[in-house]
């Protein structure tokens, strides 16, 4: 087996604010293989987006990558200069953002933006760049791409705009795509269409993908592996099916119980009490301790990410081990 496309090791991204150090990403590790999709799941403020930004080298002051490595095909992205990073970004690694209206320039036509992207990384003729742009639009299912190239972003609907953003990300056939909640703002039927396209693309082109989302049900159908984040840390990591069927960490357990469709109708949902703690003053030891039904005295000690079952990691002193092992 070849080396993974991306290997993140003990990544720490901290923000040095006036109010104190915010450990937005704290000791995060995972790998993504060629053609695989990793679902990075968490609630607001869990650090999933900052993880994506760290990989892309887009973390702005007062934030910075404090330690850890991001190995992209063996090369550590965390040590690259801004110039070297610029050559990779948009070329071999691409990102898709939540709001396509923010990524597309509203005053430039789509063709201008796409051709510019092609020419930024490759010396080709403009005609060839246009051809590539048109093919990319066709690939993401935009009808009559020739005419659509001449449109402005506001002439597209939300779903179509997101397709354009995905097409731009695909222009250079990147080895890795980081997608940050790309379907959250879309309607279900449109989300379904985009997910289907993405699934097809990953399978055919061998692109590795990190799909950042808060929606467990999207990850369930799309991803191969899942990493659940809570308060800046990965608390559970493993195969999607395994994790969702038999979660080890009490937080994952609670999160799955909170999803309405899974529960029997009319019965109260298994809710997680309390709310996510502020990253500025996290409790000592396990950050989930105060909301956890299984917490005990030793949870004051900081738990490490440990392999409780084969290829199943959890950061917990008292995981749902018996249930997970039994099934």
């Amino acid at each position: 087996m070849s080396a993974p496309t991306l290997e993140v090791r003990n990544l720490c991204t901290h923000f040095f604010t006036r109010a104190g150090v915010v450990k937005a990403v704290d000791d995060v590790s995972f790998t993504v293989d060629r053609g695989k999709v990793l679902g990075l799941v968490g609630e607001s403020g869990s650090g999933k987006t900052v993880t994506g930004f760290s990989i892309m080298g887009l973390v702005d002051a007062p934030g910075r990558i404090v330690s850890g490595s991001i190995l992209f095909q063996g090369k550590d992205l965390a040590t690259l200069s801004e110039e070297e990073m610029r050559h990779l970004r948009g070329n071999r690694i691409a990102m898709i953002f939540q709001d396509p209206m923010m990524t597309l320039n509203p005053v430039l036509r789509i063709d201008t933006q796409m051709i510019e992207t092609v020419l930024a990384h490759e010396k080709v003729s403009e005609d060839e760049a246009r051809q590539r742009s048109r093919d990319a639009l066709g690939m993401v299912g935009i009808p009559s791409p020739d005419e659509r190239l001449k449109s402005y972003p506001h002439q597209f609907s939300g779903g179509m705009r997101q397709r354009v953003a995905i097409a731009i990300a695909l222009l250079h056939r990147p080895e890795l795509i980081v997608a940050d909640e790309p379907t959250t703002a879309l309607d279900v039927t449109i989300q379904g269409q985009i997910l289907a396209e993405v699934q097809k693309l990953c399978a055919t082109t061998g692109t590795a993908m990190i799909w950042i989302t808060h929606d467990l049900s999207v990850v369930a159908g799309l991803a191969d592996d899942i990493a659940v984040m809570y308060a800046g840390k990965v608390v559970e990591y493993g195969d999607v099916g395994e994790v969702l069927d038999k979660p080890l960490h009490p937080y994952t357990h609670g999160l799955i119980g909170s999803v309405p469709s899974r529960n029997k109708r009319g019965e109260p949902l298994r809710q997680i009490p309390g709310m996510t703690p502020s990253l500025l003053n996290l409790p000592e030891g396990c950050a989930f301790r105060a909301r956890c039904p299984r917490a005990q005295a030793d949870c004051v000690q900081r738990p490490e990410l440990r392999e409780w079952l084969p290829a199943r990691l959890a950061r917990c002193h008292h995981p749902h081990r018996e249930e997970a092992a039994a099934a």
């Binding site: 779903g159 179509m160 039927t189 289907a196 049900s217 369930a220 969702l244």
Partner: peptide, 22 residues
Amino acid sequence: LLDSVPRIGNRKRAFATVKGEI
């Protein structure tokens, strides 16, 4: 609409799609 909804119980399957936009 029901076919398009991602469900937590569905694993690694092809997403069904409605053609066209609203």
